[in-house]
Simulated assay, not measured.
Amino acid sequence: MTEEYCPHHQDGNQLVKRIAIAIVGLLIVCAIVVLLVWAILHPSKPRFLLQDVTIYAFNLSTAPHLLTSNLQITLAARNPNSRIGIFYRKLDIFASYRNQQITLPTLLPTTYQGHRDFTIWSPFLYGNDVPVAPFLQAGLSADINGGLVMLDIKVFGHLKWKVGSWISRRYQINVHCPAYISFSDRIKGFQVGSAMKYQLLQTCRVDISL
């Protein structure tokens, strides 16, 4: 028994193949366009600046080794790109001393930054009776007695790039801002009520990764 020839069936298969090839070709063209736009624009990392730190409390107890800190920081971020926007999401900011976190993380608001736009955040950072390792307690006590403590203000979170209506995948952003607090030199700080405010204008290191 021979198989009957059906021209309509073959025409249908050819149509499906052509549609599939057209869709694949369109996707390839779109991907190439996106890659070309991305390569031409080549986004630059955002720039962060730690403007100031206001110390409301910074008390270290020796038995047990506990640190209580209460500070407010002013952090500025700038998008240097002229054609690319930036979405910031789930940014946590906290203070650390010699890689030990000494405050709870504070969540910064979700933010969109337009072309060459500025954003300023002024969060409070709190750490009440935070246990400090004995070897860190000795170093911190010596720094306080010496009048100079170097803190690290850290920001961890995610960002996305925006080109026109296209939005990139999510990237991780890590920001490290050294904060040199001079407890002995009142010239570098000024009284704000019961607190001391220090103008720093310290450039931060920014790392972007997948």
Rank of each mutant, 00 (worst) to 15 (best):
H158I: 06
L210N: 14
L159Y: 06
N79Q: 04
S61P: 05
Q199G: 10
S194T: 14
F58Y: 04
R78N: 11
P43H: 03
G127Y: 02
Q101H: 03
N81W: 10
S141T: 14
V163K: 02
A95G: 01
I40L: 03
D129N: 11
I167Y: 11
N128S: 14
F94G: 01
A138R: 07
T103H: 01
I187C: 14
V149I: 11
G164R: 07
F135Q: 09
K197R: 12
L151N: 05
D52L: 11
M196W: 14
L60Y: 04
K188F: 11
N13T: 12
S61H: 04
G114A: 06
I84A: 11
V163Y: 13
A179V: 01
H176F: 03
G164S: 04
V34L: 12
P131T: 04
A31H: 05
Q14I: 12
I73L: 06
S141P: 01
L27M: 09
H65Y: 03
V155K: 07
Q72H: 05
P134K: 02
A77E: 09
Q100V: 00
Y88P: 02
I21E: 11
I208M: 14
R18V: 08
Q172L: 05
L60N: 04
V149C: 06
Q137V: 02
S96V: 05
H65E: 09
Y198R: 01
L159R: 09
L108P: 08
D52K: 15
N59G: 04
D117I: 00
V130Q: 07
L67V: 03
L125P: 04
Y180T: 12
L210D: 14
E4V: 13
A77V: 00
F118L: 15
T54I: 03
I181A: 12
V132A: 04
R47E: 13
A76R: 07
V34K: 10
L104H: 07
R18C: 11
L159W: 03
A39W: 15
A57Q: 12
F87Q: 10
T110L: 15
F48Y: 14
F183S: 09
R89C: 07
S194E: 03
K162L: 08
H65V: 15
V149N: 11
Y56R: 12
S44V: 04
D52F: 05
P46C: 08
G193A: 06
L75G: 02
N79I: 10
I181R: 03
L27P: 08
Q172C: 13
F183N: 10
